[in-house]
Nucleic acid binder design. Sequence first.
DNA 1: CTGAAAGCGCTTACAG
DNA 2: CTGAAAGCGCTTACAG
Lengths: 337, 337
Amino acid sequence: MTSGRPPTLDDVARAAGVHKATASRALNPATRHQVSARTAYRVSLEATRLGYVPNTLARGLRTSRTAAVGVLIPDLTNPLFPPIVRGIQDRLEQHGYTALLVNTDGDEARERAEFNALRSRRVEGFIVATARRHHPLLELAVRERIPFVTVNRSTELPTVPAVLGDDADGVAQAVAHLRALDHTRLAHLAGPQTLSTGYVRMRAFRAAAPGAAVVECASYTEAAGYDAARLLFERHPHTTAVLAGNDLIALGTLRAIEDLGRCCPADVSVVGFNDMPFADRFRPPLTTVHVPHHLMGVQAAQLLLDHLRAAAPSWSILLPARLVVRGSTARRRPGPT
Amino acid sequence: MTSGRPPTLDDVARAAGVHKATASRALNPATRHQVSARTAYRVSLEATRLGYVPNTLARGLRTSRTAAVGVLIPDLTNPLFPPIVRGIQDRLEQHGYTALLVNTDGDEARERAEFNALRSRRVEGFIVATARRHHPLLELAVRERIPFVTVNRSTELPTVPAVLGDDADGVAQAVAHLRALDHTRLAHLAGPQTLSTGYVRMRAFRAAAPGAAVVECASYTEAAGYDAARLLFERHPHTTAVLAGNDLIALGTLRAIEDLGRCCPADVSVVGFNDMPFADRFRPPLTTVHVPHHLMGVQAAQLLLDHLRAAAPSWSILLPARLVVRGSTARRRPGPT
DNA sequence: CTGAAAGCGCTTACAG
DNA sequence: CTGAAAGCGCTTACAG
């Protein structure tokens, strides 16, 4: 029954008594009409009988369309990325495409190596979640006219389509919320300024709260958030409200607050960014800016797909952000301060 | 500078003044020694100068080795899977392999379609995290001698290598912990019995706590955990300790306890399973059985790789589970019961 | 409507 | 050490 190698188109053709070119046309929905109904039927029958699975590599070699795209993310275990990736996969799959996913861990050399590995698999384009504001590899990609879009983060090259959350608006909502709770001594624990998210959120914060304290975190991690928060409370002990660069930084901030013998939200309010999965189950439940990550992935995939079909100039997409108020923010306690 | 199509091996060969067969040998580390040092150097030089990226599809077509494996998971946004996938990717990458990842959402038809799509890309084998105890598709894969291993869950076919956590031991530890806290009215909210994890944990619970209440959840989700917990407390209101089938079921249980006006851990202790990311940040911090998911992925990838190299009969791997005690379990309150 | 032929970009026995 | 040739499994103008 099962021979050593999987059946080829030629095997199917022979079994159906036709030439492999005819079998090819019969099996491809786009060319089926070029073939008599009877032939199409016989070929399909033999194909299923033999368990024929077309060889995508061979087709790709011939047509130079692989129906694969590369997806670059920093780290899949960062809770931000699974929903984005899932959105990408869902939309790609609808179009018969496959995502080839790689982690870069923020390492430039590794990113370059992975990028080339993906090119050697002849992906038709890239979805990039690792963009930095200045990004030599992406400059190269632009020069070589390699189709790509960025997601969540952008790069400071013109003409690169991006799918982003409306970070500036999210920050404005967060600051307005804290103001409405009577907080006057605000601070921002900013994400890395090499990343567009860190930069945009910080600028929006400065615009909304001129003169307020800002400390930059070394990375978007709980540990970096903890360190930055310690520094912040050392320098500005009377801070009563913190806008964190993202939810992981917020988690680090919560730990720092606890270690300092203070309490969130009684003494200090904390707002995160992203609304990561299970943020509502934390202690305290995290007030945070929700960004529609799954949708972001879907839109990024769609944008790339559009780009691949028509070489037409593409646009960027800004998705709405929305403050979600939970337990980590409270009215400022009227006190001696 | 940049022509329309990417440079081929023949372009490089011509630029270096040799035949493409020679260029091929020069560029492949395994055959470089068949070529003079001078030629090897010249070819490499031209390759980098032209920005040559070998076409993996063409190579794969010729050698029938694609250096790709398919990975089947239920849903990437389930927090259990990112660490496993990351482990798989890390080990695969070390060997120059790539993972092709697909989500099945527990849908059998979809799984079959994805499976065939992956076969059409000529993956060399599969890592399956979607295994059910009875699994027609995997039976087919065994019959057709398609190399695969299962991870986290197993299937009831002999000869299929699996990488699993030691669930039975994890359950034993959890029950011992609850007993040590004086709990006598234990209950288990079991995972689906169609899955090896649900089945094995339930059997281990029955063995450790004969006669104790067991309710099966419809799925490994928070919602199903909530429903099952409501049912449990209706039937067995005096339950003081619950072992949940996994952490998501535990989260549903916590919500049910709250809705019933009771308190965890004061009234009811809850133990989860898996130690999902940020389980320590929940309210209350979740006592749970830690399973080394990243390592699990690494081992699964290694096992498949071994399998691909030597057709030798392979083995299974059982990784240690370890109870992590946090805030959701406490000594039973001496009361009127 | 169908077949014969060429070719996508590689690798690898086979000669020399 | 190097080259010429065949072939992996498809698709697609080109004839008929």
